[in-house]
Amino acid sequence: MKAVSGLSNKIIVKEKVLVKESYSYVDKYLDRDNEIKIYEQLSNLKNDFMIIPFEWKINKTQMVSKTEFFDNAITLHETDICVNKMKSIIKIISKIHNLELIDIKVFNPKEFLNFFIKNTKECLFDLDFIKDQVNLIIDNYWSDNSKPVFSHNDLVKGNFINYKKGWKIIDFEYAMYNHYLFDYASFISESLNKKRWNVFLNLLNLSEAELNKITNLILYQNYLWIYWASYMFEQTNDQIFKDIAKEKFENIK
């Protein structure tokens, strides 16, 4: 990896080991017990598409994990996301969704969003103009009766790395069971320029109903991450969270 940084954890690289130490204000909204259950089960699987920690523990209230560090790896930040890369990402997402884990939480869109709404003094952007629409999306989240699938839930560019000529996914902090379209919506809203959204959507070959659903999930996620960024800015006073909120707001204007 050419750059190592973390928004949710303190990251230290030493002797080809990446050590992540969680921040207390992040532990308040992430379920670390659920995360450990995921690592325990994923560590028993042979795979060529994800990298998980080889060691993890909760030290008092802090989550600490260790993962192999690859010096020459790159992330999606450092390359153009062409159609072939999009196809590779779609294959990885499909493989994740086909994993069968037990006793893992199911994502609750209302509960997760409400944490940030309740714990943020002032949102960085006025979102009242789409509040009712987002609430309707939440109310109808499972209206298609789809079966939840194991999902990564945080498909930012930095969570994809390439080494030995293959793309792999890292960082399962937010992973839970979720709607099968959530990860695709996550990749679109988190990693793609808005001008490229339709290119990726066309590769998915979705029905009209699925297109409507994924459009709603993209809106929900942009709304969610604006509140998340507002919360994180209040905790850290770091300009990067203002930048993230602005980017997400541009997506929903």
Results as ranks from 00 to 15, higher is better:
Asn159Trp: 00
Lys164Ile: 12
Val134Asp: 00
Glu111Arg: 15
Pro148Met: 06
Lys118Leu: 12
Ile92Asp: 00
Ser88Phe: 08
Val156Gln: 12
Trp142Pro: 02
Ile102Cys: 15
Lys105Cys: 13
Val149Leu: 07
Asn159Glu: 05
Leu127Lys: 02
Lys91Phe: 11
Ser151Thr: 12
Asn108Lys: 13
Ile93Glu: 01
Leu99Ile: 13
Val156Tyr: 14
Trp167Glu: 02
Val149His: 04
Ser88Glu: 15
Ile138Phe: 01
Phe107Cys: 04
Gln133Arg: 11
Phe115Lys: 05
Lys131Leu: 09
Val134Ser: 00
Lys118Ser: 14
Gln133Cys: 08
Lys87Thr: 05
Phe160Arg: 02
Asn108Cys: 11
Ile89Asp: 02
Val156Asp: 09
Ser94Met: 14
Gly158Asn: 07
Ser143Glu: 10
Lys165Asp: 14
Ile96Thr: 11
Glu111Trp: 12
Val106Pro: 12
Asn108Val: 07
Ile93His: 04
Ile92Leu: 10
Phe107Ser: 03
Ser151Asp: 10
Ile170Arg: 08
Asp144Val: 05
Asn135Thr: 08
Ile89Lys: 00
Asn145Leu: 13
Phe160Lys: 01
Ile169Gly: 04
Ile89Asn: 00
Phe160Ile: 02
Ile169Asn: 04
Asp154Asn: 13
Glu122Val: 13
Tyr141Lys: 03
Asp126Gly: 05
Leu136Tyr: 13
Asp126Cys: 07
Val106Tyr: 14
Trp167Val: 02
Glu100Val: 15
Lys157Gln: 06
Lys105Ile: 14
Phe107Lys: 02
Tyr141Cys: 01
Phe160Met: 01
Gly158Leu: 08
Lys121Phe: 12
Asn162Ile: 08
Val149Phe: 05
Phe129Ser: 09
Ile89Tyr: 01
Leu155Tyr: 06
Phe125Trp: 10
Ser143Ala: 09
Thr120Phe: 01
Asp139Trp: 02
Ser88Trp: 07
Asn108Pro: 11
Lys168His: 08
Ile96Trp: 09
Phe160Gly: 00
Ile92Arg: 00
Val106Cys: 13
Gln133Pro: 08
His152Val: 09
Ile93Gln: 01
Lys157Thr: 06
Asn108Met: 10
Lys118Asn: 14
Phe160Ser: 00
Leu101Ile: 10
Glu122Cys: 10
Ile102His: 15
Lys110Val: 11
Asp126Gln: 08
Ile170Cys: 03
Ile102Ala: 14
Phe116Ser: 03
Asp154Tyr: 08
Gly166Ile: 14
Thr120Cys: 02
Gln133His: 08
Lys147Arg: 14
Trp167Gln: 04
Glu122Ile: 13
Leu99Gly: 10
Val134Phe: 00
Phe116Cys: 07
Lys110His: 15
Trp142Asp: 04
Val149Ile: 11
Phe150Gly: 02
Ile102Gln: 15
His97Phe: 12
Thr120Asp: 01
Asp139Thr: 05
Asn119Phe: 03
Val106Met: 12
Lys157Pro: 03
Met86Gly: 03
Ile170Lys: 03
Ile138Val: 01
Ile89Val: 11
Leu101Ala: 07
Ile170Ala: 02
Phe125Gln: 06
Asn162Val: 07
Trp167Ile: 01
Lys105Trp: 11
Glu122Gly: 07
His152Ile: 06
Lys164Glu: 14
Lys110Gln: 15
Phe115Leu: 03
Cys123Arg: 01
Lys164Cys: 13
Gly158Trp: 05
Asn119Arg: 03
Phe107Trp: 04
Asn140Leu: 05
Asp154Glu: 11
Leu101Asp: 04
Lys164Pro: 09
Asn119Gly: 02
